[in-house]
Simulated assay, not measured.
Amino acid sequence: MKCLLFFISCLFCVSLNSFAQDRADQQHLTDQNSFSMILLGDPQGYTKYDINQPLFDLCTAWIADNIDQLNIKTVLCTGDIVEQNENIVRNRKMLNQTSREMWEAASNAFKRLDNKVPYIISAGNHEYGYQRSENGMTHFPEYFPFERNSAWRDICVSAYPNRNGLASLENAAFEFADPNWGKLLVLTTEFAPRDEVLNWAKNLISQSSYKDHKVIFMTHSFLKERTAERIQEETYAITPRNWGEAIWQKLIKPSENIFMVICGHTGKPGDFEDSVAYRVDKNSSGKDVHQMMFNIQILGGGWEGNGGDGWLRILEFLPDGKTIKVRTYSPLFGISPSTKHLAHRTGACDQFDIVVK
């Protein structure tokens, strides 16, 4: 009888475990020797309403659940993790949280990844000033100090002080290694980076230690939605600053080893194509530079909707050392059997390959 009960118990545990995995909707690599990076678009629409904040938690919980399954090396976030950096007056038409509540919500969402996987945030315009980058004041280093995530310790190789002269991960470089891809460097910068930040980045990646690395450059504002034009000028008062085209001319184009630029920031209500962009240009050495914008904040019902329907991107780096498979996926749809069929976008702008030459 005890053997029978034990057998039934084992069957129940196996069934429960299978059910839990099915509900979590774990994703798979197309090649077991690949690794991945997960890309999060601007999450401010999740944090500015208390009712939306669990959707951000769901995204990071799903990532944590798939670290081993997808061999995730890092999580990339395009910035604007809050709606307003420093404001206590709640404009109910566009938010119901104070700035502190939004910072705490963003911090709690990323807490699920602490000490498990590095995440790299490209601070956006909403992380500065009071409401929209009136100046360089920011609470970013308070909520995301270097010490909070042990996964940063061995891979952060350089950082540059922020606009307030403080040590911060707003301007930082992270090194990764893979037997098929060699050495990679992910470099992130503050919103509309100053000349000295671009010079720091340029000097760093040209050093003998990093000149042979494949470099991914992240900054919040760079491309416009749909047209993929590089941004020439914006109206934010923060100074000094550089916009997309200036960043291209001063840093990206002259650098031999930057092969990809990732940004967020722009978008408008409409089709999914109005929240993404992609283009390829040659740098001064004749090498392709892939530039990708991904910003999902208005896809779940517009500016005041649910914040983005949980959409994120899985960037799978294949073992051929040159191909990145881009997939657009939502754990919000994927978690339920009744909506799982909607969890993958398969349009031309959602699912494509990047070939690094």
Rank of each mutant, 00 (worst) to 15 (best):
T219F: 02
R163A: 14
H213V: 08
T219P: 01
R132C: 14
G124D: 02
P118T: 09
L198T: 08
T138A: 08
M137N: 11
A109Y: 00
E147Q: 09
F146K: 11
A167R: 15
A123H: 04
I121W: 04
S209F: 08
E196K: 03
F222K: 05
F110E: 03
V197Q: 02
Y143R: 02
K116E: 15
L113W: 01
F140H: 08
S133W: 05
F222L: 07
L198M: 15
R226A: 10
P145K: 08
G165H: 10
V215L: 08
P118C: 03
W200A: 03
E196V: 04
I155G: 01
A109V: 02
R163Q: 12
L187Y: 01
T188Q: 00
P141K: 05
F222Q: 01
S208I: 08
T188Y: 01
H220D: 03
N180Y: 14
P145C: 09
P145E: 07
L223Y: 00
H220C: 04
E127S: 06
P118K: 06
I120M: 05
A123W: 06
H213D: 09
M102V: 01
N162G: 04
E190W: 07
I205L: 04
P118Y: 04
G165C: 09
P179Y: 07
E147D: 09
V215S: 04
M137Y: 11
N125D: 11
Y210H: 03
R230P: 00
N115T: 14
L113M: 02
L223W: 03
Q207S: 15
T189F: 07
F144M: 07
V215A: 09
N149S: 07
F144Y: 09
L198F: 09
R194P: 03
F222Y: 10
F222E: 00
A177K: 13
K111M: 10
N149D: 09
H139P: 06
P141R: 05
V157Q: 12
E104P: 06
D212M: 13
F176K: 04
G124E: 00
F217Q: 07
E190V: 10
T189G: 05
Y143V: 08
A123P: 05
G129H: 03
R163E: 13
E127P: 08
Q131D: 15
D154S: 02
S122Q: 01
E142G: 14
Y143Q: 01
A228H: 11
I120D: 00
K211N: 13
E142C: 12
T138L: 05
E134F: 03
